[in-house]
Structure formats: C-alpha cells, structure tokens
Design a binder for these strands. Structure first.
Length: 390
DNA sequence: GATGCTATGAAAC
DNA sequence: CTAACGGTTTCATAGCATC
C-alpha cells in the first residue's frame, strides 16, 4: 500500500487501535513455546467454555464460547490443547503491553485487557505505518506477544483497519486507512461483511443484510436518519463514524463504573443455604474491594441465584432481589449482611443451584459523597463512610 | 404530555 | 463412567407508573 503524501482533504484525526492476537493463547505461548503452531484453546472458569482460540483452533472450526465437553471429540482427533485460564498472568502481560504503548502517544485509552486506542493525530501521516510497525516489533521483542495495528480517522474505522491488518497478509499486521486513496479504500470496504463492524453483532447483521446492506461500504453509504428511525442511535453513530465523523471520543481516563458485579458458576451444583451464603459472602467481598478501589459507595444491592438452564429435565428456579439502601456505603460487613438478608428472601430449598452473584448499583463517587456532605451540612457524616442519598 | 423507573436486550471483550 | 455451558459492563429502548 502506497502512502498518500498529498495534503488530506479534511483535518483528519489518526486513531490507532492496537490489539493482541488471540491474547490469552498468546500469553500462554510466551511461557510454553511447545504451544506454538498447535491448536490451543483457553477455557473459562471451571474449564467450562473456550474463551480464546489459537488460529489453528479457529481453523479447525472451534467456535468462540463452545463448551469444552462438546469439543472433546474434535480435540482428541486433532490434538487440540485445552488450558485453564490464568487471569493474573494475563493482567500482568496486559500491563506490560499498555505501558509500552503509552510511550507512543500521550493520548491513550486502554479499552480492554488486550486493546488500546492511541490518538496519533498530528504525527506525520505518511510515517504512521512505520510507526505502527515499530510498536508491533517492540511489543513482540519485549513481551513475546503478537499485535496488529489499525489506523483510521475514528475509533470505528480504527477497529475496522485493525481487522484488515489481522485478516489480510498484504498489510503485514499494520493497516492505515488514512494512507489509502479513496477508491482504494472503497474497494476494500466492498469486500468486508457488515457484521465485522464494531457495534454490529449477531442480531443486527442479518437484519441489515435483509435490507440489502451486505458490506461495510453499503452501510457507509446508508442514510443515517432513516436507519436511526428503524434501529437506534447507536447505528446512526456507527454510520457517521464510518464516514469519518467522530461520534465516539477517546476516553483517556476511564469513568468510574456505574455498577459492579461479582458472580460465578459453581463447579458443582449447590443445594444448601449455607454453601450459597458462603459464595455470596465471597462475591460481595470482592465486589466491595472493586467498589472501594474506584472510591465509590453503593446505593443498592442486588442478589441472584439460579439453577442451570442447560439441565432441561431438572426443576428450574431463578430469582433475584434488589435492596435499596437507606444510605450509600462501601463497608464490606454492611454489604455482606444486606446480601445475605436478600439471599434469605429468595432462597428455596431442593434446587440444584448452578450460579449466584451480587451486583452493586446506584454508585456514587467519593467526590459525589463529599459534595453531598457539604450540601447537606454534614448530616450523617459518621467516620465519613456513609452518605445519605438525596 | 412529559418525565422517571425498571426490566430487558444487544453488544462488546 | 457420565455429565459437563463465562463474567462484566454499558447503552438504548419499551413498557409502565407518576406527576
């Protein structure tokens, strides 16, 4: 791809999206080179489902999210290796990658454990492909992880460019839409399925195809107003972003979570109240840690328990309860007690429970608490831990 | 008729 | 030997209740 060194028609932003290939699998391979070149999947909690697949595993047709027991035959046949996940390792590797990337731009959004946006606007456009190659080679050398780089004038386009970098060997893992001629880009976008666009998922893709929007180019040329009517604002924004109009900003500082959830499927079904209570206590403790780490206070607590929907013949029960708190708190003891009270309300004996969890919502930040306290002249300020919701 | 709350669904990683 | 199936989060909307 030849770089375009003509002046660009509009003041164009250059947003890069850097994404580690098959992140969990690649992490495992760094520490066990025997896994290189063979089909590998990393499994979810309790070795339940495939949450990451190597290219070899994908080529064998292993679907994302497939339960491991359904893969046993295929695995035996082709020697697919199933690994338990090691989230502490992945978090550590992620931190290394993110700090390397931070040196390439002061404007970074860490979007997920294996993805980061960088704003490269103002960097010399014709150099961006080599800049991207530099990142890629450095990350590979310093962490052992393979990444791809996509560059475009919006986040949606950067995502799409990243997809091209990954899927099309021509780009050698770095694809810059901004460096392509309009006709060249159009030709490319005609070959990509609508379903590949960020925000177009399993439900939306078939609906759009039914209306004749089969490729990215089709959707790019669609009438945003009309599709907003028919679908949603989200889709309207996507169309604008495909045309280079920024609708989704770079979020360098991640806003505090509005709700915090902790839940887990059990390795084996649980029937008795005490075991359930133990789990709920554990989940709430971890939720409370997350809550305090972002310096928030919870205004309501939700507790839920459920049997396995996959056991068709077993009696099913699923219930949850939301408990509003008179006063927002971040205190583990208080939160656990409330959750256990909630559990008592919804618990029914003689069911095989498969999953339980808690959710904290109506979160207010410590900042908000401060303001609240000032505005309410310190009412309910006992050890600064509680605040009244107004 | 406008506004607010809740439950639900779709999407993402 | 059999059965076995993730976890969080956000955002938008629809339906219902309320002012």
């Amino acid at each position: 791809m030849k770089e375009n060194d003509m002046p660009l028609p509009h003041p164009t932003r250059s947003i890069a999206l850097i994404d580690v290939n098959n992140f969990y699998v690649s992490c495992e391979r760094v520490f066990n080179p025997k896994l290189v070149g063979v089909p590998v999947v990393v499994l979810s909690n309790n070795d339940g489902c495939a949450v990451a697949r190597s290219n070899e595993a994908k080529a064998l047709g292993v679907p994302m999210g497939e339960p491991w027991f359904k893969l046993k035959d295929l695995a035996k046949q082709h020697g697919i290796i199933g690994l338990s996940s090691n989230y502490a390792l992945y978090a550590d590797m992620s931190n290394r990658v993110m700090s390397i990337l931070r040196e390439y731009s002061p404007d970074q959004e860490v979007y997920s454990i294996d993805e980061s946006f960088l704003d490269l606007t103002g960097f010399q456009s014709r150099d961006l492909i080599s800049y991207g190659q530099h990142m890629r080679k450095r990350i590979l050398k310093w962490t052992g992880l393979p990444v791809c780089v996509g560059i475009g004038s919006t986040k949606t386009l950067a995502k799409l460019a990243n997809h091209c970098a990954k899927k099309r060997p021509v780009f050698n893992s770095v694809c810059n839409f901004n460096a392509m001629l309009p006709t060249e880009l159009e030709h490319l976008l005609c070959q990509i399925d609508v379903g590949e666009i960020w925000g177009i998922g399993r439900k939306l893709a078939p609906k759009l195809q039914a209306l004749g929007f089969n490729t990215v180019q089709d959707l790019k040329r669609a009438n945003p107003d009309r599709l907003r009517q028919q679908f949603s604002v989200v889709l309207e924004k996507t169309i604008h972003e495909l045309n280079g109009t920024v609708c989704i900003d770079l979020e360098e500082i991640s806003p505090p979570k509005q709700q915090i959830m902790s839940s887990r499927s059990f390795g084996q079904p649980i029937r008795d109240y005490n075991s359930l209570a133990e789990s709920i206590t554990l989940y709430m403790s971890s939720a409370a840690v997350k809550l305090r780490r972002q310096q928030s206070f919870a205004g309501s607590v939700h507790v839920f328990i459920r049997t396995s929907p996959f056991k068709q013949d077993a009696p099913q029960y699923s219930n949850g309860i939301t408990i509003p708190l008179p006063s927002a708190t971040d205190n583990t003891m208080q939160l656990v007690n409330i959750a256990l009270w909630g559990l008592k309300q919804i618990y029914r004996p003689n069911y095989d429970y498969a999953k339980a969890g808690v959710m904290l919502s109506e979160l207010v930040t410590a900042q908000g608490v401060q303001n609240d306290l000032f505005s309410q002249s310190g009412a309910n300020a006992e050890n600064g831990k509680n605040c009244t919701l107004s």
